[in-house]
Design a protein around this nucleic acid. Sequence first.
DNA 1: AAATAATACCTAAGTTTCTTAGGTGTTGTG
DNA 2: CACAACACCTAAGAAACTTAGGTATTATTT
Lengths: 109, 109
Amino acid sequence: MSNSKLYKGSLTTIILKLLNEEGKMYGYEITQKVKQLTQGELKITEGALYPSLHKMEADGLLEVEVVKVENRLRKYYKLTENGTKETVNKLEELQTYIKTMQTLMGKLA
Amino acid sequence: MSNSKLYKGSLTTIILKLLNEEGKMYGYEITQKVKQLTQGELKITEGALYPSLHKMEADGLLEVEVVKVENRLRKYYKLTENGTKETVNKLEELQTYIKTMQTLMGKLA
DNA sequence: AAATAATACCTAAGTTTCTTAGGTGTTGTG
DNA sequence: CACAACACCTAAGAAACTTAGGTATTATTT
């Protein structure tokens, strides 16, 4: 228990932002990177991650390159052109949401 | 369209915070208050609100008082003791979430 | 040497929490 | 008199998670 729940809707934003910065990443790497960056505060479960990646690929936001490293498969994802555009949108959306919530919480403080 | 989507999970927090500040409110009043406080940025739909209120009541966070005003029903909700405790938890959870997301977004800026 | 953890992928069932799209009835406004 | 505003409601569907598995390889621990 205890790992603070993902606010539904934010996983896509996290993936987009990470790929935007890192260029390309594979699934497992994303889970580790998020854990590391947030000091364990946020844990992306694989059950959430993989279906998300597949959907984002189907939506044309990501493209895949399969690579074999030490007899292990890795599916590297990177942003498509549309994916890059969507990254901007999602980041704006998140900032707006945070500002709105802080307004709501603050105005009543 | 256009009203920025509620990040799933935050409606309960909003309701708790409002009731914590205002003492008691009825459903319709909550939708109007949120619209006003956020300058129309956030619109709580009744389809989301009423089921939430009912669930929170069933969970023992809220209690109801039905009042007839000008031949119209109003169901005033207020926090129970557990509701007040849960308000603290939810607010902390939100602050943590915001901080975590800003860390994630910022560290990669 | 065997068991376990870590790496790396995956899916299916269930839950929660919204959105969408209605419905009822009263009161105020153009 | 129609329509908006007030005030409540529900049901069906979608979205996005959690939980709980599964496969297979490699590294570590006992």
